[in-house]
Design a protein around this nucleic acid. Structure first.
Lengths: 151, 151
DNA sequence: GCTCTTTATATCGTGCACGATCTTTTCGCT
DNA sequence: AGCGAAAAGATCGTGCACGATATAAAGAGC
């Protein structure tokens, strides 16, 4: 048994809470702007991946986003329903579903860039080496994924 | 209109994705250990707050966790249902609900500390000044909350 | 004392995240 | 060819996050 008052200690000393609450805050910052485009935050992140690389399978997209198909499939269906992308079985391998942006889906990149410009401005102003941060967070992610796998 | 291929650029250059995926990875690292205690990740974080300060109102707890009552109330009801805490209306002001840990709820702190010891060990080993990180993330959170409010 | 407003919490509907399970297609092996 | 295993997605149930709305108690102003 550990000492009842020992570390982990207070909420503010917890890395998990720091990331949890920072993520929620960022999510909240994006939400109103994205909602004007009819997008949710995970949908936007998914589109970021597709704008970067189109015509991918659900599995590939999941690897990129660290999501399973049980999360991705319904999300992609919603994006398909509003006409941002298409989901079609690959005739070469009928197990696979290929995801492709429509014209409208591609056009959304510009709209999103405009709608989020105020956030990006903010980021660059405060911009204490964003790239360093991003890399550090990516390293943390890999560590955590490694630890999760080991379980 | 922004250039279609301009910044924000790739997924990996996005702070939002870095935090989003890091948070998900940490969540995934905690999940199996917490599930042995019958807890979810947000429930654990809520308990962290309560172990630090007990006998608080739902609103106070929400401020601490950056959550609204629409999220907190069902979560607290679940923790109450398994006997970790009690929710009672304050007789002085019947609008207010006070949240109090039970004996079992307090005892859970030690169990959690044990169940998560491997994670805490990991954190201290990798431990490049956790506190610096945590503070930086808290600053980011405040910035984001500020920006979200301004919307 | 009686409305009007504010405050504290609860409820509801939608979407995300994920473990568990299922279906279909492909592959490996003999 | 035939069959068992593996792979790719889909489906379902639970819980979280949150906007919108509802309810009920407390306070304010007259």
């Amino acid at each position: 048994m550990s000492a009842p008052t020992g570390r982990p200690g207070t909420l503010d000393q917890q890395l998990c809470f720091a990331i949890y609450s920072a993520n929620a805050a960022i999510h909240r910052m994006y939400r109103p702007h994205l909602s004007k485009l009819g997008l949710t935050y995970p949908q936007y992140i998914t589109l970021l991946a597709l704008w970067e690389r189109d015509d991918v399978t659900v599995g590939e997209l999941g690897k990129r986003l660290f999501l399973e198909t049980n999360t991705l499939t319904p999300l992609l269906k919603r994006l398909e329903a509003v006409g941002h992308l298409t989901r079609t079985r690959d005739p070469r391998d009928e197990r696979v579903v290929r995801v492709r942006l429509t014209q409208g889906g591609r056009a959304l990149q510009g709209e999103a860039s405009d709608a989020l410009s105020c956030i990006h401005t903010l980021a660059e102003e405060a911009g204490t080496d964003l790239d360093v941060w991003i890399e550090a967070l990516a390293a943390l992610r890999e560590q955590a994924l490694e630890a999760a796998k080991a379980t």
